[in-house]
Simulated scan of single mutants.
Amino acid sequence: MQIAANEKRKALVTEITLRKARTIIRKALEKGREIDLKPLSVVVVDGGGHVQAFEREDGAPAGRFQIAFGKAYGAVVIGVPSSKLVDMALERPHFVNALSGVYDGKIVPVAGGVLVRDKKGALIGAVGVTGDTSDNDAAAALAGIEAAGLIGEA
Rank of each mutant, 00 (worst) to 15 (best):
I78N: 11
F65K: 08
V43Y: 05
E7P: 00
G113D: 11
G128I: 03
A60L: 09
S83D: 12
V13I: 15
G49V: 13
A72L: 01
A154I: 02
Y73I: 06
A11N: 12
A111M: 02
A143T: 06
G47W: 08
D135P: 00
I67E: 09
A5C: 00
V127S: 07
S134C: 01
V96N: 01
L115I: 11
A98N: 07
V129R: 04
I124F: 04
A28Q: 00
Y103C: 06
L150E: 11
P81V: 06
P109M: 09
A122M: 10
K38F: 07
V44G: 04
V96M: 05
L115D: 07
T130R: 03
A111N: 10
D132C: 06
G48I: 04
V127W: 06
V43S: 02
I107Q: 02
G113L: 14
A11P: 04
S83P: 01
V129P: 05
K8Y: 12
L115W: 11
I124W: 13
V76G: 06
V129D: 09
I16Y: 01
G47V: 09
V127K: 09
A60Q: 04
D46A: 05
G48R: 15
L123N: 01
Q52C: 02
L150G: 03
N136Y: 14
V45S: 01
F65M: 07
I16S: 02
R56A: 13
L99S: 07
D87P: 00
A111V: 00
T133M: 02
G70M: 08
A122P: 00
E55K: 13
Y103E: 10
V114P: 01
E146S: 13
F65R: 06
E55F: 12
V102R: 12
K119R: 15
R26E: 11
G144K: 07
E91S: 13
V77M: 05
A139L: 15
A111F: 03
N6V: 09
I25L: 01
A4I: 12
K27V: 03
V116A: 03
T130F: 03
R9W: 09
N6L: 13
L90E: 14
S82Y: 11
E30K: 12
V114L: 08
G113E: 12
D135T: 05
A11V: 03
R117D: 03
A139H: 08
V108T: 13
A138N: 10
G112C: 09
K71R: 14
R56E: 04
I145L: 01
A62K: 15
T23M: 05
K106H: 12
G48W: 08
D118P: 06
N97L: 13
G70T: 07
I16A: 02
S82H: 04
I107C: 08
E7K: 12
G131M: 08
Y73M: 02
V77P: 04
I24Q: 02
L123P: 01
I107F: 05
E153V: 10
T133C: 00
S82R: 09
D36Q: 15
R33Y: 09
D118F: 12
E7V: 07
L150H: 06
A139W: 02
L142V: 11
P39Q: 10
V110W: 14
V13M: 07
Y73E: 06
V110E: 14
V108H: 08
R19L: 07
G49R: 13
V42W: 13
D58F: 11
G49N: 14
S134T: 14
G105T: 01
I24V: 15
A126V: 02
K119E: 06
R22W: 06
I25Y: 07
V129F: 08
S134G: 06
